[in-house]
């Protein structure tokens, strides 16, 4: 897959939209990525959902790593979409930019066929059954970490796995072991699913 830089954005910038349903851990997933970015020396700006929408409604968060101070990501400009729920993945698909990538917690993609649009926009869709993996590990709530592990295989140049591990030690100390298991399960699956993102120099050639 390729992630060519959008016009005007800085080289280190990574815009990530995380979507799901209240209770799935969208806020935790965002904080995990945000804290990891800080740990590797990148400034972040993110936007969380609070209040009424957390009571089982659709939840979305925006995370900008190394970008500007505006907290929201415009539709058509997100590098990555992490969808903890397939329906919410589809709903938020328009956030993804041409050349970006979608990681969805699902056995078989999105609930509707969008392949012609995805092809035209060169958006890569990756399904990963994070909920099933988490269920197998015995703790359904770590599906978010498993999906992050899967996506991490693709963005390791910006957010390395060991940095995410260290962040988990800081912010999820109580259930560290199971979170690390979920992270590693996802990462291994991600490595198998596709080659990591090309570096800056590779990109110039593509």
């Amino acid at each position: 897959m390729t992630l060519s830089d959008p016009p005007g954005a800085g080289p280190q910038e990574l815009k990530i939209v995380t979507a799901g349903i209240g209770g799935q851990g969208v806020v935790f997933a965002t904080r995990l990525l945000a804290h990891t970015a800080i740990a590797v020396g990148l400034p972040i700006m993110a936007s969380e959902t609070h209040g009424m929408s957390q009571r089982g409604g659709s939840v979305i968060s925006h995370l900008k790593i190394g970008g500007t101070q505006a907290p929201l990501i415009r539709k058509g400009t997100a590098d990555l979409l992490l969808a903890l729920d397939a329906d919410e993945g589809l709903r938020n698909l328009p956030y993804v930019r041409s050349g970006g990538a979608v990681f969805v917690n699902s056995e078989d993609g999105l609930p509707a066929d969008m392949s012609s649009h995805l092809e035209r926009l060169r958006i890569n869709l990756h399904s990963y059954p994070a909920a099933k993996i988490a269920m197998d590990l015995g703790i359904p709530t770590v599906a978010n970490v498993a999906l992050i592990g899967f996506a991490a295989a693709f963005i390791a140049t910006t957010l390395p796995l060991d940095a995410i591990e260290r962040t988990l030690k800081d912010i999820a100390a109580r259930q560290l072991e199971i979170n690390l298991k979920a992270l590693h399960a996802g990462y291994e699956a991600g490595q198998k699913a596709g080659r990591p993102l090309p570096s800056e120099t590779d990109e110039a050639d593509s």
């Binding site: 957390q54 409604g57 659709s58 589809l90 698909l93 041409s98 926009l121």
Partner: peptide, 20 residues
């Protein structure tokens, strides 16, 4: 961004309304 077609396609797909 040239994703208006995608946006229209998503809007045309019936998705569960997740009221709180």
């Amino acid at each position: 961004p040239d994703n208006l077609d995608l946006e229209a396609a998503v809007e045309a797909t019936p998705l569960p309304i997740r009221r709180p």
